[in-house]
Design a binder for these strands. Structure first.
Lengths: 332, 332
DNA sequence: TTGAAAGCGCTACCAC
DNA sequence: GTGGTAGCGCTTTCAA
């Protein structure tokens, strides 16, 4: 814990005013070359580094953005967080990270904490059903970019993946490979992603003239849930040739379950997921899934936000829908 | 972007001085009950929330801690980051996250960014060989807790895992299961974790009176590296019955490589790792590995730091060495 | 129990 | 080109 060197110390030692020191710090207006160099010399001599907090207070911006997401230890989010972080750092911003586990209460306290810290903007991956009001509250204080999970009725930048289309294509693939009796394990239904994926499945089935409805289980994106529903499917001897899950983690669980029960995947039971987390390409049989550009989503969302901060705030809300891609591997 | 309500507005509306408002905000000294309630009413009426930046400037603390780590999208770190974050939030702190990819230059700019932001403390997972000077520089400005990878010659809190012992035990297990011709793929050798793990291996071999030296490959903790060294091992027909890797990611790569080449794991080639990332228990054959309590490490490190911030800074540096545990699964 | 006022370290406007 | 100075919004003596 050293002594804090302030702009005043530099000014005194260089024999100039603090205004001048501030000018060389910010290169904000011309300073005579010799003065400039003298000040710079003193700065490095004293090891001075500006107090960003003080600067923030007087400028009204902090150079910090916040990211609110459900759980960094869920394998889908690290890439996303990395994308946000990289884009932020590239523009000289710094990132505060908040985990909510999808609880409205944690989302609320995260929003509050970030706003108190006067972050310049927030990237928000919603997890609770109270998303709208929280996004709205946050938007009153700073720009917000909603990412991954769509939030209706708010006006802010939004970056998502075309979940409907991804799911539609996956379903078509499933139909192409001969499956007609499909079980589907959903994600939490208050999330747009979950709803869209289910809708994609249904519409594709309908479009193909399949009248048999898929067997739908209400899941929650967790590995264990995939595992147990799969076990149920076996136990009940359900007439199903394929289990398609709303995310990879559940698909991995389901696959494990089938394998543990001695079923051959994909011969006796096909399994498909959604996300394309790292694990999915590494296990065997490798999982057929819909790849989401998570890193890219993070980058784009952060860039939307930062452009809005740098240029005027009065840009119209932008939204970007990224195209997911079907990755056919060995599980289907 | 709403109007910022300040303490002044509250004071005026409540007909008191800003000092009094500050007092009710901080409950720092007695305020007459009726005044207190009136102020509180105005606060919620106006939707006032204190500007943390201003508070930070005058108090000299920010309530923010920084975490510097190599890469949040490397599966070992999310749990650790979550641990740090949870402990921080529990104490009312907020977390800034920086990724360095192990580059000294990025570590340096991260340290700088955090110090400028006046963070109250830093949790540092070192990745470069310039760790010592960076930790030292950071320590001049705020408390630092070094985590996971040990840094010699600095005086700060430190939380690590007993890598030596973990590796020793793994080796004993390998010997117990009959392996004598062991190949070992190291991590980056400038990391204490890598060195300790190698030392554990060697010492255990020596202790068991095995004179044949292990075949050591210099790795870098990456999946692909495990994959290619394994392929080399096959290609060269090296006389080895077991490949032990300094982390799970490489072990997973090696295993994949063997499997792809038609070798049976563990019958024809055993594989062992270190870390116990989620994937390791999910693949088949499940990976034998040394489990590290990553989440707990994060929690403890953050708590060391925060206790130091709350109580006096003059605590002697503490260090905690957690015990890893051998998890025997199917790959050995 | 409350108010006035001096900072915290910096930026930015206004003079010279 | 450079200096003086009024804030930024809050905390914290010091008085009253």
């Amino acid at each position: 814990m050293g002594t804090r060197v302030t702009i005043k110390d530099v000014a005194k030692k260089a024999g100039v005013s603090i205004s001048t020191v501030s000018r060389v710090l910010n290169k904000s207006s011309y300073v005579k070359k010799s003065t400039f160099e003298r000040v710079e010399a003193v700065i490095s001599e004293l090891g001075y580094s500006p107090n960003h907090i003080a600067r923030s207070l007087s400028k009204g911006t902090t150079g910090i953005i916040g990211a609110i997401l459900p759980d960094i230890s869920n394998p889908f989010f690290p890439a996303l967080a990395r994308g946000i972080g990289d884009a932020a750092v590239a523009r000289g911003y710094t990132l505060i990270l908040c985990n909510t586990d999808g609880y409205a209460s944690h989302e609320k306290s995260s929003v509050r904490a970030l706003l108190e810290k006067q972050v310049d903007g927030i990237v928000f991956v919603t997890g609770s059903s109270r998303a709208v009001e929280l996004v709205r509250e946050a938007s009153k204080a700073c720009p917000v970019a909603v990412i991954d999970r769509e939030v209706q009725g708010v006006s802010c930048d939004m970056v998502t993946v075309d979940n409907y289309r991804g799911s539609f294509e996956m379903t078509r693939h499933l139909l192409n490979t001969g499956h007609r009796h499909i079980a589907y394990i959903t994600g939490p239904m208050h999330l747009s992603t979950s709803r869209e994926r289910l809708r994609g499945l249904r519409d594709c089935l309908a479009a193909a003239g399949i009248e048999r409805q898929p067997l739908v289980f209400n899941g929650d994106f967790k590995y264990d849930t995939g595992y147990s529903f799969a076990r149920e499917i076996i136990r009940l001897g359900l007439d199903v040739t394929c289990v398609y899950c709303a995310n990879d983690l559940m698909a991995l669980g389901a696959m494990r379950s089938f394998l543990d029960s001695g079923l051959k995947v994909p011969e006796q039971m096909a399994v498909a997921g959604f996300d394309d987390i790292a694990m999915s390409s590494l296990i065997r049989p490798a999982l057929t899934t819909i790849a989401q550009p998570a890193y890219q989503m993070g980058v784009i969302a952060a860039e939307f936000l930062l452009e809005r901060l740098d240029n005027g705030k009065e840009l119209a809300p932008r939204s970007k829908i990224l195209e997911p891609v079907l990755v056919i591997r060995d599980s289907t």
